[in-house]
Amino acid sequence: MSVNKIALVAHDACKDLMVQWVGKHINRLRQISVVATGTTGGRIAAAYPELSVTLLKSGPLGGDQQIGAMIAEGALDGLIFFVDPMSPMPHDVDVKALTRLAIVYDLPMACSPSTADAVLDYLSDDQE
C-alpha cells in the first residue's frame, strides 16, 4: 500500500515525543502529504522546516474534528495519534471520537512510537 496522506496529532506532554518521532522518520515523511493539528503541526514545522505540513486548527478548537472529518471522507491513509496517558484527559471526548472513527473506517492508527513505526512500515511502499 502506498501512503499518500497521514495525520499527526499529539496531546499535551506527548508533543515532544511526536517531534522526535517525526525526526526519526523525516526522510519517509517528506515523501507523503502530512496534516497535523495546529500546535503539534507548528512544533513539527519549527523543528523540520523542510517538511511540508498542512496545519489544521488546534485540537481542542476543532482540529481533532477536522481530522475526524478527513477520516470519514476517506481522505487519510493513516493516523498517528499520541495521547498523553498521564493527563487528566481534558481531550477525552476527542480521543474517543477519533479512535471510534479510525476503527469504523478501518484506518491504520497508532498511539505510541513503536506502533507508529509499525503503521508507517505497513503504509510504506517497502511492504509487499
Rank of each mutant, 00 (worst) to 15 (best):
M109R: 14
A45T: 06
N4G: 13
V83R: 00
S58F: 07
L17E: 14
R43P: 00
T115S: 15
L107G: 07
T54Y: 07
E73Q: 13
D12L: 09
T37H: 11
L61C: 14
Q66A: 14
L123K: 03
S124R: 01
T115K: 12
A46W: 04
A45C: 06
D16H: 09
S52R: 08
A75G: 05
D12R: 11
M86T: 07
A118P: 01
Q127M: 13
G42I: 10
Y105T: 05
T54E: 15
T40H: 09
G68S: 06
V119Y: 12
F81Y: 09
E128F: 11
H91R: 10
P88C: 06
P88V: 13
D94L: 02
G62V: 04
L61F: 15
D117E: 15
V93S: 05
G68N: 00
T39Y: 09
Y105G: 03
K96A: 12
I67N: 05
H25E: 06
H11R: 06
V35E: 05
P85K: 12
A72I: 01
G23H: 07
P88W: 11
D92Y: 09
Q20L: 11
D16C: 04
G59F: 07
D64I: 02
T115D: 08
I26H: 10
E50K: 07
T40V: 10
G62N: 04
L76Q: 03
L61E: 15
D117G: 14
Y48N: 01
K57R: 15
G78P: 04
V35H: 07
A97H: 12
V22F: 02
A102N: 11
P49R: 01
S124N: 08
I32K: 05
I26S: 04
Q65N: 03
S2W: 01
S2L: 08
T40N: 08
L76D: 03
